[in-house]
Simulated scan of single mutants.
Amino acid sequence: MNQSTMFNVTELRATSQAQAEQRAAKGIVFVLDDDPSIRSSYERLFTLEGFVCFAYDSAEALITGRTIDAERLNGPRCLLCDVSLPGKSGLDVQEALGSEQAMMPFIFISGVSSEVEVVQAYRKGGYAFLLKPIDISELLATVSSALVLSGNRQQESAELARLQAMVMQLTERERAVIKLVLEGCTNPQISDRLRIALRTVKVHRQHAMQKLGAKNLVELTRTALRSSILC
C-alpha cells in the first residue's frame, strides 16, 4: 500500500467514524432476534431512520458484543429484544443487563407471550412490550420515545456528575460552612458553632459558592439538593 492509498484509507475511516457519531447522537438501537431476515429488516429500517443499529442473533452475542460495538459512540440507546430465543430468552437478558435499563430502555417483542411474561418484563423495568405482527409506526414511535427517555437520563447523569465534581472541590471547612448555611444558620451563628472568626466564615462561604457556581442562596440550595451530597 503506497502512502497516498494509506492517506485515503485513513480519511475514509475518519469520515465513517464521523458519520457513525452523527447517527449515534440521534440514537443507537440494539436488536436481539434469532431470525436473520428479521434482523436485516430492523437494520434497514433503523438505518433509514438515521439511527445506528447493531443486531445480534443470541443473548450471548449481545451481552459480549454491545459494549465493544458501541465503544466509541455516544448517544441515547435502547434495546429491541425478542422474548422467545434459543438458549437464553429475552427475559434472561433483562435479568443479566437489568442495571443498564435506566440508560438503555428495553423494548420486548413477542408473537405469543403469557401474561406472566408481560408482567415480569414490566416489573423488572421493561419499557414496552409489543406483540407481533408489529406495526411499523408503533415500533418507530416506541423506539423514538425510548431514545428520548435514554437521552434525558444521560443528561441528568452527566449533570449530576458535574455537580458532584464541583462539590468534591470543597475543603472540609467549606463543606461544614455550607451545610450550616443550608440549615438556615447566619454567618454569626456559623462562627459560633464552628468556633472560627466571622471573617473566616465569610471567606469560606464565598469560596464555596464560587466553586459550586452559585450566585445566591437559591442557586446554592438547588445545587446542594441536586447533588444529594451536602444534604
Rank of each mutant, 00 (worst) to 15 (best):
G65V: 07
Q22I: 09
E159S: 07
S150F: 04
C53P: 00
I190C: 08
K211D: 04
A96V: 05
F30I: 11
S84Y: 03
L230G: 02
L160T: 07
C53W: 00
S16W: 01
T15K: 09
S16R: 12
A121F: 04
Q120H: 13
V93C: 02
E138R: 15
P105K: 12
P76Q: 14
G184V: 11
D92W: 00
A102K: 10
L217E: 12
A197F: 03
G213K: 01
R226M: 11
V29Q: 05
Q94D: 02
L45Q: 05
R123Q: 15
M1V: 11
K124H: 13
A121S: 12
A141F: 09
L97G: 08
T15E: 07
M104L: 13
R175V: 12
P36R: 15
I28W: 01
L220K: 04
A208W: 00
F30K: 05
A70G: 07
I196D: 02
D57Y: 08
E183V: 09
R199N: 02
A197Y: 02
A161V: 12
L73R: 07
G213S: 02
G87K: 05
L212A: 05
G98D: 11
Q169N: 07
V143Q: 04
F129R: 11
I109S: 06
T47F: 02
Q17D: 12
L163Q: 04
S113H: 07
V167I: 08
N187Y: 04
E71S: 15
G111V: 09
G75S: 12
D192T: 15
D33G: 08
A128I: 10
E138P: 01
L217G: 04
Y122K: 14
V119C: 07
C231G: 10
A59V: 11
A55R: 03
Q189H: 04
L180D: 03
G98C: 09
Q94S: 05
A224V: 07
Q210M: 09
R199G: 03
V148R: 12
S58D: 06
L217W: 03
Q19C: 09
V9E: 07
A55N: 05
V31D: 02
R162Q: 14
L220H: 00
V112A: 14
L48M: 13
E49A: 15
R23Q: 13
R66N: 11
S137Y: 07
G27I: 14
Y122C: 10
L80T: 10
E11R: 09
R77S: 15
L182W: 01
M103S: 13
T142Y: 01
L32C: 06
Q210P: 00
Q206P: 00
K132R: 15
F54N: 06
I63A: 02
A61M: 09
M6I: 11
S157E: 13
E95Q: 14
Y56S: 06
F129D: 06
R13N: 14
G184P: 02
L12T: 10
G98K: 11
D135R: 14
Y42W: 09
G98S: 10
A25F: 07
S137F: 05
P76M: 14
A214D: 06
I190A: 09
R195M: 12
I229R: 03
K88D: 09
S191H: 03
R66W: 12
F7S: 04
I134R: 05
E138C: 10
L194M: 11
V143R: 03
E138Q: 15
S4I: 13
L130E: 06
G125K: 08
